[in-house]
Simulated assay, not measured.
Amino acid sequence: MSDPKSLALFYVADGYRLEKQSWLLSASLAKAHEGDARVRQVAYATAPNRAEMRDITHAIYEVCGVELRTLSAPPKWKKPYPHGNKIVAACDDRGATHSVFLDTDMACTASLAEFMDLAPDTCAAAPEGRPTWGGKNARWTRAYAHFDMEVPKERVKLLRGAKLEYVPYFNAGLVAFPEAKQDDGRRFGEHWLDTALDFDLNCAIANKRPWLDQITLPLTMKRFGYKTRVLDELHNYSLSHRMDYSQTPDAVILHYHRMRFLYQSPQWPDLRDTLVDKMPSAHRDELDAHIKDIESSLDAEDSSAST
């Protein structure tokens, strides 16, 4: 009999800015998966930042069932690449059949349990909003050629602006994947790291940063034979620079980038209340002050912009 399905939702809360963002993410994930014992959360921080984590963070993690793990040391990138922490975390064995990586500047409004149904050779991600890399100088052709591959014939529709038909290019803020070992005995995270390192160190091509994770995600999938479930924008709904926030759809994941965008969305009051409800009373005053600072600063910013 096959092992029962399980899902690890993981993120990198390394440093105080990401740590603070993870309060809302962990609370919203906990609410969206209440009663589902198959789903658990794992947060990662480097050893120095883990030692400096504040009590309020430990408190909300305990309530939300978040396991805190120390992030492994980074590999020898060509030059420092903090975005690579997600790839390092993806390599960790969380003991689940499936995993979903999430950026900390996200909030969840519905269950992600569907990703436990991904086939052992299938990953899932939503297309990027715009062609931020590879549109000039045949870069995608050269990137695939580095691994002796041709650019895929299939195209995805990018999610912002003109919504171009483009080579497979995904936002790496949410990536779902199986933890099954492939024919070479390695899992997806290890394949992604192998590809990203090789590309970073050995492929002479410009402007890899900060997009190295997103460039190498489709390269990894093709290189190691993974199929791709292309997600719609409701699974990774970017809130940045929208014209009318009153029309924000009921997205599964809101990718807000900056708090001023989330604050304008109709989902913010419920998300704020979820965070307040989850926070232990001993830290409620600190959280209330944090929320007041956010809302008052954004109100002041709006007033200044309107004068």
Rank of each mutant, 00 (worst) to 15 (best):
A206K: 08
A162K: 13
Q21F: 06
L239Q: 03
A119H: 05
A90V: 00
M106I: 04
V252H: 03
L9Y: 00
L24E: 03
E150C: 09
N49F: 10
D277M: 03
P80Q: 13
K222R: 11
Y263H: 15
P131H: 08
D117Q: 12
P280L: 08
H290D: 04
F177Q: 08
Y81A: 05
H255Q: 07
F115H: 09
Y11K: 01
I87C: 07
K181Q: 12
E34Y: 00
M106K: 11
L262I: 10
D184P: 10
T307I: 11
S297F: 06
L68H: 01
A13G: 10
A125C: 13
R242D: 03
A180Y: 04
D103I: 06
M243D: 15
A196F: 03
H241I: 11
L231P: 05
N137F: 13
A282N: 09
T216F: 04
D232G: 14
D93W: 01
L68E: 05
W192T: 03
S306I: 15
M243Y: 10
V252K: 10
A8P: 00
Y263E: 14
Y61V: 00
K181C: 14
R139Y: 14
P152G: 09
L239H: 07
G185L: 07
L271P: 10
P74L: 00
C64S: 06
G84V: 01
P127Y: 03
S303N: 13
Q182R: 13
M279I: 10
E190W: 02
Y256T: 13
L164F: 09
D3I: 06
P131Y: 03
Q182A: 12
L287S: 04
E52C: 05
Q214K: 08
A126Q: 13
L217Y: 11
F115A: 02
D14T: 09
K79R: 10
D270G: 13
R69D: 02
D270Q: 13
A300P: 10
A251F: 01
Y256W: 14
V63I: 06
D277C: 04
T228K: 08
R130T: 12
N171L: 08
F188T: 07
G134F: 03
I60A: 02
K278P: 01
H241E: 15
S265I: 05
D148M: 05
Q214A: 09
Q247F: 08
E52T: 09
G225F: 11
I87W: 05
P120I: 07
R160P: 02
H257V: 15
L262T: 14
V63D: 00
H83D: 13
K86S: 08
D93A: 02
H83T: 12
W140C: 09
H83K: 11
E301Y: 12
S296M: 08
A172C: 15
H191A: 07
C203V: 05
R139V: 02
A107L: 06
V100W: 02
Y169P: 08
H283G: 05
R242T: 09
G185M: 07
A206W: 02
E154W: 10
K20F: 05
